[in-house]
Design a protein around this nucleic acid. Structure first.
Lengths: 186, 186
DNA sequence: CCCGGTGGAGAACGAGCGTTCTCTACCGCG
DNA sequence: CGCGGTAGAGAACGCTCGTTCTCCACCGGG
């Protein structure tokens, strides 16, 4: 711990921040607790992230990259444009079933900080826009009408919100079935 | 203000709490601000609601009754079981367009307090269950397969989440169109 | 007119927490 | 061996806020 590379300290801090912020909410986790969980001293934490808000931003940004990466990796293993669209919902089901699943980190962050931190709010909007555009790409690959993208997006968002509140994987299956019907609609 | 009936004070407190909690979030509004906005003294506030958490509960409970009442009133003016289902989404569009719309109060509260207040979490689950069951009733009236209820619910939830984040009424129209396709799906 | 009690205004208290500061140990270098 | 500088541990600071307390004005009953 004596000589700790900055990059390593940064990753450890973000690991602890992600686990604590996602699991218990941002406002109820103090910087001191992140220090304890990460082993990164407060002084170092504030060198790496000059304020808690910037730590939150970095947490959401790293999670965004990883979350969309995991989704894309799963989806791209499927063959066929429609199968790929349905795979999004299969992946949601896997995600909802993971230990420690607590809903969508961006929805939760927005509920907590959307009115007080414009930077967090912007990050949430950017993440949702990126997810929607990813779906739009899948819809275009399937040569479906562009309006389907928004509809599938709403199903996925509804499933995330509901799974977070009810702690169940069922919404993913419900959303998948609805998506299947939408794909078959004229 | 000198002689204030308890019931009146209670309503004034809840009016202020609703406006402030919904508009700015629960954690960022202090009891003192509610006193200022309501004209109800702190002493009286704590007689009526022995803790902030109980004031939050009362706010959510009263809002639940009113929200579902307004929805049902709008829906029941339509004739025909399928028209009534679509009316839910028309009403969402009106709601999203209201001044001061800030997303779903229950999703927001859950994001803020879901991990720290089991009572608030339970209230959110109860509200969502009631809304889902209301949809299930409409679906049954239309003699549609029961699975449609969950699918329409997810569309509505996705629309609420998205409208809250993007401050747009468009998600209601997208959800309505998806619902229309689902109603026509075999 | 006096008096007890009710209610309001606002101070006070105590805890939590973001952020900074102090002190000390250690390490590489001359 | 001495020294400057870096890093960590943890205290300290300042602020916010939920909750309670103090003080005083008012009001109805004897």
């Amino acid at each position: 711990m004596a000589v700790m590379d900055s990059a390593v300290a940064r990753e450890q801090a973000l690991d602890a921040a992600e686990e604590l912020f996602y699991g218990r909410g941002i406002q109820s986790v103090g910087m001191d607790e992140i220090r304890g969980a990460s082993g990164v001293s407060l002084k170092r934490l504030y060198q790496l992230f000059p304020s808690k808000e910037q730590l939150v931003e970095a947490y959401l940004e790293r999670r965004d990259v990883r979350w969309r990466g995991r989704l894309a990796e799963f989806v791209e293993r499927r063959e066929g444009p429609e199968a790929r669209i349905l795979a999004v919902f299969d992946w949601l089901e896997l995600w909802f079933g993971e230990d420690g699943f607590r809903g969508c980190a961006w929805m939760n962050s927005y509920g907590e900080l959307g009115t007080s931190s414009t930077r967090v709010a912007a990050q949430v909007r950017a993440h949702k826009r990126a997810f929607r555009e990813y779906l739009a790409g899948l819809v275009a690959d399937a040569a479906l009408p562009g309006a389907r993208a928004g509809q599938l997006f709403l199903l996925a968002e509804g499933a995330m919100a509901t799974a977070g509140i009810t702690r169940s994987t069922e919404p993913a299956r419900e959303a998948r079935e609805a998506a299947r019907l939408l794909l078959r609609a004229c």
